[in-house]
């Protein structure tokens, strides 16, 4: 489970609407509490570095990764996951998402349909890399 405030969900949605019909991407900063639950505290919008079709690809460059990691460090937080948008399709990970996923991170996907954010769902990679598993989002 990942706990994300309504305010952060709203900011992720707005980011997805702003970049529509292109995908948006950003870092989710937070921490893991004693019972293993991830708590999101901040997000960091990142410019989509993909040189492919940005309507279906999003990319964080290594330099932007390092910058996000530094911001997390400065806030005494960790990068606990990443968000990106899926313009005009469901908030379900694709095979491309799976091929590029790292363990442990939460992958928050917001579906943006006709420039309006719809569902937001979160996923994490199974240990054997075979698939994503959905995790519940506790909004507060």
């Amino acid at each position: 489970m990942i706990q994300i405030s309504n305010e952060i969900i709203s900011r992720i949605s707005k980011h997805g609407e702003k970049t529509y019909p292109e995908e948006c991407i950003g870092a989710v900063l937070g921490f893991v509490n004693d019972d293993g639950r991830k708590i999101a505290r901040e997000i960091m919008e990142i410019e989509n570095a993909s040189t492919e079709n940005r309507q279906r690809r999003s990319l964080v460059s290594p330099d932007d990764y390092k910058a996000a990691d530094q911001v997390a460090d400065d806030l005494d937080l960790d990068i606990i996951g990443w968000y990106h948008s899926h313009p005009d399709v469901k908030a379900v990970p694709s095979q491309y998402d799976l091929d590029n996923a790292l363990p442990w991170y939460s992958y928050v996907i917001v579906s943006v349909k006709k420039q309006k954010a719809a569902e937001t769902r979160s996923w994490f990679l199974k240990e054997d890399r075979s698939a994503f598993q959905e995790e519940s989002i506790k909004q507060y």
Binding site: I25, R56, S58, V60, S61, Y65, S94, N100, L102
Partner: peptide, 11 residues
């Protein structure tokens, strides 16, 4: 070891 983070919908 620095990951690139990539995502995207089905082609």
């Amino acid at each position: 070891i620095i990951p690139s983070i990539a995502g995207g919908k089905e082609a």
